[in-house]
Design a protein around this nucleic acid. Structure first.
Lengths: 271, 271
DNA sequence: ACATTTGTGATTATATTTGATTGTTTTTGA
DNA sequence: TCAAAAACAATCAAATATAATCACAAATGT
């Protein structure tokens, strides 16, 4: 029976914020406080979160919406679920990016989070088949090379046989990839054969393959296989696997890194 | 009499500055202070920043916009000048899109406006080298095929030799293209050689070429030529050319379509 | 019900942006 | 060429925005 003010839930507020930014393209913190009836601290926190997810660019006094916001309904939901896990995994992947590297970043929200972290690195070359990664890096940062091909709307990636001709032109130091399913025996699997085709091509053009997969993917098998487990050099995931699973992966030569979400520290298992 | 003065956010101001420069081509610091209500120090700082980004060249007393600014910028918002002209040109292009066609849409804001008009046409196949066109169609509508390649940030398009391999795989019914400069004798020109390379490739893969160019482009010549006038089948522009210019284009086999803009404002003088 | 976690707003300290002031450089016109 | 005028860069202080910290309330799990 205390105050009956109905405050917005955080995701609700973020969705309103997204709509505002879609319309206005630019918003100042003060106006946000007024419109959403929140404090400046909360407004800033929300903007910071959207920036981490690569949806806005913050500037002194407010934020600017990115073009990427104009598209995609399905995909967005995935990014908000388990966002902190994805963020933590992305941060753990950062040490594998060396100065002047050329990288491949594929689709998937975890890899997108990594792209956000690289947005100010002008020394890098990023090859990608993801429209959203390209969007996240469109304003500045690394040199961007996009693999052509047909747009697969569900994942917002470019896939299929036409990707081959561009991919055959390039070589990268490190490929950061995501997956739908992952088991030691079945290897890496995804849902769409065309997506699988492109992913396997990518892996063949990379010196080092780093798999970013939150723990929900492990033990799952999807329709289309695209790589064997032994083709993965490093697996970064969001919590410690049981000893057996870790051993199974290491038997295939995979280095397993688990991120402790609470402390946000990595606990390497292995050499 | 509340204090109704709200200062512009930095990116807002820079965007206004870009628009001013696109219109006037040259601007003095004093005028900037007046128009944007800022001090000379801030005006200089803004110009210095745009100069670092290669968008303007500073001169004593002000700055000159570079040709590349016409190539359509990273951000264009609702305040974009000539937005209604671009929209009208795009609408005039619509009758050239037949059911089940495959189209090419290149970079440039006029073509982007056309993309927006096609966003609900599921019968089409759209090939593009523009990140923004892909973004506009990312949520649904036509099948989208993106040409890969290096991202040219200024125009937000993918250009260069890597586009070749994908473009050689495709053929389209109609290519809708923009340009920076257009004269009957010099043909079509743009600022960046890589951009020109890709544009000329596109034209060679299209059965029909339709040029969308607002009147500010006509009579201009930019650095890199990418097509002869006789390679263009239709030119759609925003106001009637003089009789001689029209005849010159028609002599090269170009069909000229001029869109009559009806303005909401009452203009005392006739056309 | 209790303790724990999470989210929010207030407070303080820090950082950024801005406009005024200063001295220096460039342009202009004799 | 020189000197005056204009424009510029550098510096500083004030205004403003942000980050960091704390305390409290609500939600959550035990």
């Amino acid at each position: 029976m205390s105050k009956n003010e109905q405050r917005d839930l955080a995701p609700e507020r973020l969705e309103k914020l997204r709509h505002i930014l879609r319309e206005h393209r630019i918003i100042r913190v003060d106006d946000l406080c007024q419109i959403l009836q929140i404090s400046a601290a909360t407004a800033r926190r929300d903007l910071a979160q959207l920036e981490m997810q690569g949806e806005v660019r913050r500037v002194h006094g407010g934020a600017v919406g990115l073009d990427t916001m104009l598209a995609e309904p399905v995909f967005d939901d995935k990014t908000s679920i388990a966002a902190s896990e994805k963020q933590a995994i992305a941060e753990a992947a950062l040490p594998f990016v060396k100065p002047n590297d050329s990288l491949f970043l594929d689709g998937g929200s975890t890899v997108l989070a990594l792209a956000g972290l690289l947005a100010s690195r002008t020394d890098l070359t990023v090859v990608t088949n993801s429209l959203r990664v390209a969007g996240a890096l469109a304003a500045g940062g690394p040199a961007v090379i996009l693999v052509g091909g047909e747009l697969r709307r569900l994942s917002q990636t470019f896939v299929g046989p036409m990707t081959r001709f561009t991919l055959e032109q390039i070589h990268v130091d490190t490929a950061f990839i995501g997956t739908i399913g992952l088991t030691p025996e079945q290897g890496l699997t995804t849902t769409d054969p065309k997506e699988a085709y492109t992913k396997s091509l990518i892996i063949s053009r990379a010196r080092q393959v780093i798999l970013l997969a939150d723990s929900s993917k492990i033990g799952k098998t999807a329709f289309s296989p695209f790589a064997r487990t032994d083709q993965v050099h490093v697996l970064i995931t969001d919590r410690a696997l049981d000893r057996k699973a870790t051993r199974d992966f290491e038997k295939h030569g995979v280095r397993v890194i688990a991120v402790d979400i609470v402390k946000n520290r990595t606990t390497p298992k292995g050499p």
